[in-house]
């Protein structure tokens, strides 16, 4: 359970799983219903989506679709949704970067500086998830409102022009993405910093390393597994999100999710929607692979 290990799944293998022979069928019996569910409702749909992405785009829900292996759907879908696709990865990347910049100090503070307040601060990190995703995203509409205190303040000190706004801008969308997925980044990062042996830092100090040097040479490398897991848990849902773009942005900030949503639910253009959806998955997969390879860690997988 690769990505999840960063969050603190216990080490496997401590139990003694060997059981008496003659009950070999038992694990398969236990696994059967759940596995069947996942095969039928996860892998089955994936195959169907793959098939749908190659349907003849001339068909419709009423007339039915013919399987014509139209690979051109991918070209059309990616070309038509090019700006939104690029924007998705671009927004998600910026949000991830901001997330790391503000999430690292938070995780570090909780893991190494919080003492007996640790648990309370951890609860505060996950607290946003206690309420509805959509409701808390809507709250940003109030915070960033043209008549709100924040915009007023920014206008007064001249960061925003007299009629400058935050709502319905890319800033609002990136801010919303950062806000909504930050806990997914902070938790694994916290878990890896928490495991860090404090004596290593003392030893580094003892060996004449300045605090900054100790951080770069010891803390940062040792927290890499958590950082890699955290950024992936942040980035993957952020790319696929379109709630923030819809609620906090405007049509010019739409992400690929908005396009896919409208392809399936408004335009009812299944072949192109499916192609775009599949293309998105492949792009994410490639980026994740490259990222894991470049970060030189296989501990998360």
């Amino acid at each position: 359970m690769t990505l999840m290990t960063g969050i603190g799944a216990a080490p496997a293998g401590s139990a003694r799983p060997a059981r008496k022979s003659g009950r070999r069928w038992l694990p398969y019996l236990l696994l059967l219903p759940g596995t069947l569910w996942l095969v039928v409702f996860f892998f089955g749909p994936m195959l169907t989506l793959g098939a749908a992405s190659l349907w003849d785009p001339a068909g419709s829900l009423q007339t039915g679709y013919a399987q014509t292996l139209s690979f051109g759907n991918y070209v059309d879908a990616v070309r038509d949704a090019g700006p939104q696709l690029l924007r998705s990865f671009w927004y998600a990347a910026i949000a991830t970067l901001i997330g790391v910049i503000i999430g690292y100090p938070l995780a570090y503070a909780i893991a190494l500086k919080a003492g007996r307040w640790k648990y309370l601060l951890l609860v505060a990190v996950v607290a946003p998830m206690f309420t509805s995703f959509l409701v808390r995203t809507l709250a940003w509409k109030t915070i960033l409102s043209d008549n709100g205190a924040l915009v007023g303040l920014l206008r007064d000190i001249g960061i925003l022009g007299a009629d400058g706004r935050l709502l319905a801008t890319p800033i609002a969308v990136v801010l919303g993405l950062t806000y909504n997925f930050l806990p997914f980044l902070v938790l694994p990062l916290y878990a890896s910093l928490e495991r860090l042996d404090r004596r290593l830092l003392e030893a580094a100090g003892d060996l004449y390393a300045s605090p900054a040097r100790s951080f770069v040479k010891i803390t940062l490398p040792l927290s890499m597994p958590g950082l890699v897991a955290g950024t992936l848990l942040f980035f993957i849902p952020a790319v696929g999100d379109y709630i923030n773009a819809e609620l906090l942005g405007n049509p010019n900030t739409y992400m690929v999710g908005n396009v896919i949503d409208s392809a399936f639910l408004v335009r009812l253009d299944y072949p192109h929607g499916a192609a775009l959806s599949f293309a998105l998955m492949f792009l994410i997969l490639i980026i994740v692979m490259v990222y894991l390879f470049r970060s030189g860690t296989d501990e998360v997988v």
């Binding site: 359970m1 690769t2 990505l3 999840m4 596995t35 996942l38 095969v39 409702f41 996860f42 892998f43 089955g44 749909p45 994936m46 169907t48 989506l49 098939a51 749908a52 829900l61 993957i236 849902p237 790319v239 696929g240 379109y242 690929v256 999710g257 896919i260 399936f264 299944y270 929607g273 499916a274 959806s277 599949f278 998105l280 998955m281 994410i284």
Partner: peptide, 22 residues
């Protein structure tokens, strides 16, 4: 099989289920 649904974007799972049901 257990890991994949956690690593797949919801968007992809949602649309694929829709494709299956349709």
């Amino acid at each position: 099989i257990i890991f994949l649904p956690m690593a797949t974007p919801e968007l992809v799972m949602g649309t694929s289920l829709l494709a299956l049901f349709v």
